[in-house]
């Protein structure tokens, strides 16, 4: 008999409820990023030329590398969930470590990118000091760039915190074939974080 909270009829009911709760939470996340992307769309539409010029200053190659990191991390995350369900403690832990490593690599690349932007003065509107980009609305692009990627990075950081938490519980054997709701839910969350990036990368880096 798997354990479950007293107010649920069964462990299955509890898992179903948790899963549904996570979906509802992800809906709120979609709407939050959605609001930001609507803002981006509006300004892109208002100042197409400035946004076109500004987007050329983003490093497509670094963005592409990060895309690869995140997609791979989704694969390792999916593996982690499967191994946990199968009760393979070591394999599951290794997959989680792999996911964490890829997430960390993502952050490193992000650090390189951000420091370039800081160096070039490609900053949010009020602090924008770059002299090459003369279009008066170009700074708005970088405002939105930092807001969207910054909010996404915050999600990556939170995700890494959650990954460390379930890694500890997986390693200690708490999360295993009997009970792995946290792993599955963090998995959902992590795939969502990837998905957001899959939208951000073309929107910011590629569409010109």
């Amino acid at each position: 008999m798997r354990h479950h909270a007293h107010h649920f009829a069964s462990a299955e009911a509890e898992f179903e409820a948790s899963k549904q709760g996570m979906w509802v939470f992800l809906v709120t996340e979609v709407l939050m990023f959605g609001g930001l992307l609507v803002g981006y769309g509006i300004f892109r539409n208002l100042y197409p030329e400035a946004f076109h010029e500004a987007h050329k200053h983003l490093a497509v190659s670094l963005g592409a590398i990060n895309t690869v990191f995140l997609i791979s991390s989704s694969v390792t995350m999916a593996l982690a969930v499967t191994y946990t369900q199968m009760g393979k403690r070591v394999a599951a832990s290794c997959s989680l470590i792999g996911t964490l490593t890829l997430a960390f690599s993502f952050l490193c690349v992000k650090y390189v990118e951000y420091s370039h932007k800081f160096h070039d003065g490609l900053l949010p509107a009020g602090y924008f000091t770059n002299t090459e980009l003369k279009l008066p609305e170009a700074p708005l692009f970088f405002s939105l760039y930092f807001m969207t990627t910054g909010l996404h990075m915050l999600h990556v950081l939170i995700g890494m915190g959650l990954l460390i938490w379930i890694l500890r519980r997986t390693w200690s054997g708490e999360l295993s074939s009997g009970y792995c709701t946290p792993t599955e839910l963090v998995g959902f969350y992590w795939h969502f974080v990837d998905l957001v990036w899959i939208f951000l990368f073309p929107l910011l880096y590629l569409v010109g």
Partner: peptide, 14 residues
């Protein structure tokens, strides 16, 4: 905090 300018007409915002 960061003067992103999205809503600030002085920085091109609306």
């Amino acid at each position: 905090v960061l003067q992103i300018g999205i809503f600030d007409p002085k920085l091109g915002g609306d």
